[in-house]
């Protein structure tokens, strides 16, 4: 395993997320077997690996969608292993999905308002009009991702790249300590990819949010991550800077290849 410390990580800061010895099997298939890593505040960490390497399983264990067979997940010093997604969210984990997940019968603003209502006052009030709640806070979040002008539009009619921004705003609504992004740029045009990840990196640095994302586009990975973690067949095979991982012979063999068709240089 190549463990090259990135220059920025040398400024020792506290790990927001610590995954320790995570393991999960499905009917005898070991999807993830003993994976450990950590993510620090304000850092962008990419999780890459071949299809079926266990990235999504790993993500779902961190986000609460799956319960690990073994190991623990620690968020800012507190164990969150096996908690339900809605509890994990309350403790400060924002999440975006590979296939955008928004509420299509609501406007862009209402999507963010929904998250704020859930965070601030709960959803059990059956009488008070919801549209009037947290308008300013919702607009501030939308401004942060550059969607303020489209606040009144229906989510169902937005362009794909804009939907991704809305999802980011929703994920930021609970002032998360950790942001989990599953293939954030899948299905986007190359230029949009760069823009979205640059935006995410800026917000992460500003708000000191730890970001963990999976990604297939190596241009995005090498341009926007402080650190890269590589999984193969459920095991962690490399954890280090983009440059170190790119040179790693094992990573080249199982994942990167010669770089002839991927755009890797």
């Amino acid at each position: 395993m190549s463990a090259v410390v990135s220059p920025r990580a040398a400024v020792a800061d506290e790990a927001v997320l610590v995954a320790r010895d995570l393991a999960k099997s499905f009917g005898g298939v070991h999807a993830v077997q003993g994976v450990s890593f950590s993510v620090e505040a304000g850092r962008m960490v990419a999780l890459i690996g071949p299809n079926g390497a266990g990235k999504t399983t790993c993500f779902n264990m961190l986000g609460g969608q799956l319960k690990p067979d073994r190991g623990e997940v620690i968020l800012a010093g507190q164990a969150i292993t096996g908690l339900k997604p809605r509890r994990v969210w309350r403790l400060g984990v924002g999440r975006t999905f590979q296939i955008t997940a928004t509420f299509t019968s609501m406007t862009v603003r209402e999507n963010v308002q929904m998250a704020l209502i859930s965070q601030e006052d709960g959803v059990w009030n059956p009488f008070r009009p919801a549209r009037t709640r947290h308008v300013a806070a919702a607009d501030a979040l939308l401004a942060q991702v550059g969607m303020r002008e489209q606040a009144e539009r229906a989510c169902g009619v937005l362009a794909y790249g804009d939907l991704k921004r809305v999802e980011l705003a929703v994920a930021l609504a609970n002032r998360p300590k950790l942001l989990l992004m599953d293939e954030p740029t899948a299905g986007m045009a190359p230029r949009e990819r760069v823009e979205l990840m640059a935006l995410t990196a800026r917000i992460a640095a500003q708000e000191q949010i730890a970001v963990l994302f999976t990604e297939h586009d190596m241009d995005v990975v090498f341009a926007h991550s402080d650190r890269v973690i590589v999984l193969d067949r459920g095991r962690l095979i490399a954890d280090g800077t983009a440059e170190a991982v790119r040179q790693d012979p094992q990573v080249r063999a199982v994942y990167l290849g010669s770089g002839a068709t991927s755009g890797g240089h």
Partner: peptide, 22 residues
Amino acid sequence: FSPLGYALRAARDNPLRTEAIG
């Protein structure tokens, strides 16, 4: 049109997202 009604619509539109916002 109350928070409850909104949450109900949210659960219909996208249960995954709804759970992920608590």
